[in-house]
Design a protein around this nucleic acid. Structure first.
Lengths: 208, 208
DNA sequence: TATTCTAGAACAAAAGGAGAACAAAAATGC
DNA sequence: GCATTTTTGTTCTCCTTTTGTTCTAGAATA
């Protein structure tokens, strides 16, 4: 899951935090990693945060925090630690904004078998455009962040940078088809550069 | 099941993962296996993945994960813990036997928000008779044990003491209608004494 | 305000992964 | 034994992700 660099940095942060009760500054991390610039650190920190290993307050100095890490799924051989995982609930899909733009602190607890490797998040479905695939208005879908998908899988797609939608993904040459699962809606076709995959559907939960 | 090469590589991956918490790169695996090219590794990894021993994220560095391998369902379904609840997975509905008769020790972990008060259990749905309600073949439904239901709710009903089915519940006078959510199936009507409610649908989970 | 940090774009380079094509070796079936 | 299929090894090419660097901006604070 972690790259060697991310792992090395994580260890340094943990160590510093344990010894000095203060997280290291970007400058200190830069020195430790042997870099000439802090940007690389910025990126590593973002990566660690995305993968759920640390948390940090934006624009605050030395405000890193280690998240006691529970791997997404029973990760190492033989050991199975199967606590359910709290995923960020990033909002409603079809709401018309990129997922990143939706600030939220809501989380939803999801059983571990629902997820595999990688970064996941949850969305509430709005609308019935995927009705025939058994995805109803109000359902919570579990998404694994990804930017590519196999043909025919259901993805969260970002169109023109602002419209988010859950549809079946088809890529034909340089054009992309977003296919609903409801005859009342039409398949929409875009040039490949207008559409970006934000994640792949991996699970669904519904409450009655 | 595994070829000698696959087995050797799997062991190496396990060992590396256990020792360094970071999976080996293709390059490292290539060296370990004494090959001159990463392609062979690529194929071995694909083989291991196809056989369900590992999982990996496409195009991501060092993103291998060992899947604890026992052909045992409960390993797939994870076990209990503090905040998510382990429900008994009592079998497939529409299997033709009363739920009580199905012996099982399988459990499935379910997030707490999915359940309210009372005794709950889980069932795997078989068939598409509730398709239009978004309940698809293979879905896991969460049921609260009950013996009465409001009109129009979806219930697990036991007909004539042996047939279990998931349908919409309607009670008119002394007769009961079990209504599917799929035009391909017919609503069936019984006298009230032939049908018994075994539980009410309260949640649904699906994995892709 | 000066200082110290974090944020993040942009570009280049390195590391890593995907996969086709072809050949040799090993296992399998008859 | 002989033909067939499966596995393995190698070479090559292409693409994506990750990392390093430089530069500029913005926020927090003494």
């Amino acid at each position: 899951m972690l790259t060697p660099k991310q792992y090395k940095l994580l260890q340094f942060i943990e160590k510093t935090l344990a010894e000095q009760k203060v997280s290291p500054s970007f400058e200190e991390m830069k020195d430790f990693m042997g870099l000439k610039s802090k940007s690389g650190i910025h990126r590593l920190v973002a990566g660690l945060e995305a993968k759920g290993y640390i948390r940090h307050l934006p624009n605050q100095a030395r405000a890193l925090e280690i998240i006691p890490h529970q791997p997404n799924i029973s990760s190492f051989y033989g050991v199975s630690n199967d606590d359910s995982v709290a995923l960020p609930l990033v909002g409603k899909i079809a709401a018309g904004y990129p997922i990143e733009a939706v600030a939220t602190q809501d989380t939803i607890s999801v059983p571990p078998q629902m997820m595999g490797l990688g970064e996941h998040y949850a969305l509430v479905v709005e609308g019935d455009s995927m009705k025939d695939a058994g995805i109803m208005d109000g359902d919570t879908v579990i998404i694994r962040r990804a930017n590519r998908a196999n043909d025919g899988t259901i993805v969260v797609a970002l169109v023109d940078g602002f419209e988010v939608t859950l549809k079946k993904w088809h890529m034909k040459g340089n054009s992309v088809a977003l296919e609903p699962a409801n005859p009342a809606y039409q398949t929409r076709i875009f040039s490949a550069d207008r559409v970006e995959i934000q994640g792949i559907l991996v699970g669904l939960m519904r409450q009655y």
